[in-house]
């Protein structure tokens, strides 16, 4: 693999000192980047160079680097997680780009996701939405019953699992023209709404989570479908329809 020819790249990276300061796009030139390196490795190389020059490295979120933690969050060349489909930024490789390319790297843009520094945004709004209802009140300390004791229809179990694959990265918000969190919120609602254990709090859950999302400043859903296409886990718009249905039923009931 080491025989691959190195790439020359121009990077336009969003630099912002802190939440209060005004940021700007900074231009960096990189030589001899391996096409086999991941996007985050490429940023590591950029940061090594910056540190050696005595400059402040570019701050960006990352953790597992294998597409499951939901930490990485970059808006690359006009799309969340870059040009690939069903991958996170850490799963994007430089072979997706061409030698001589200019690559724009920006943070998620949303009122509810304020920039903390450079490419890092505060996604605690997602945590607060979860706290508003993304749980079931079952006592699981020491008296957990067997999972198969309550029969669940296979189709429902599969759909609930698909919804639960959401890693909460926020790409749906980043992609949406209204910075709406509908795909995230609906996935977190669906993973319980489809299971018997989730029924007890179903009405409160949908009302409280939807309310919290709106209060955080996420926009309305315009059904453009951008979120579904950019979601690294392929969460379906069907979840948003389910949320709309659940919210209507809950609003009519109480």
């Amino acid at each position: 693999m080491s025989t691959a020819k190195g790439m020359k790249l121009t990077l336009k990276v969003w630099r912002q000192k802190n939440a209060e300061s005004k940021g700007n796009l900074e231009t960096y030139e990189l030589e001899d980047v391996s096409p086999d390196s991941s996007f985050l490795e490429m940023l590591d190389i950029l940061n090594d160079g910056l540190i050696q020059k005595g400059e402040t490295p570019v701050e960006f979120d990352h953790d597992c680097r294998e597409g499951i933690c939901g930490s990485c969050s970059l808006y690359i060349n006009g799309e969340p997680h870059g040009p690939g489909r069903r991958i996170t930024t850490c799963q994007l490789h430089m072979r997706s780009f061409n030698d001589g390319d200019t690559i724009y790297v920006e943070p998620w843009r949303a009122k509810a996701f304020p920039v903390i520094k450079d490419l890092v945004v505060d996604r605690s709004a997602f945590d607060r939405i979860q706290h508003a209802g993304g749980y079931i009140s079952v006592n699981t300390s020491g008296n957990t019953q067997d999972a198969n004791a309550i029969p669940v229809e296979k189709e429902n179990a599969d759909q609930a699992f698909d919804a639960a694959t959401c890693i909460g990265c926020g790409a749906c918000v980043a992609a949406c023209k209204n910075a709406s969190a509908s795909l995230f919120v609906s996935a977190k609602i669906s993973q319980y709404a489809l299971l018997p254990q989730g029924q007890v709090e179903a009405k409160d859950r949908v009302q409280n989570m939807v309310k919290q999302a709106q209060e955080e400043g996420f926009g309305p859903c315009s059904n453009t479908g951008a979120c579904e296409i950019e979601c690294p886990k392929g969460i379906s718009l069907e979840n948003i329809a389910r949320m709309n249905r659940e919210y209507l039923a809950a609003s009519l009931a109480k």
Binding site: N77, K111, K177, A179, S180
Partner: peptide
């Protein structure tokens, strides 16, 4: 209102 600061470079045609 939900996005006060716009992207410098965006390709919405790729997903909608």
């Amino acid at each position: 209102k939900a996005r006060p600061e716009q992207y410098a470079y965006s390709k919405p045609g790729k997903n909608s």
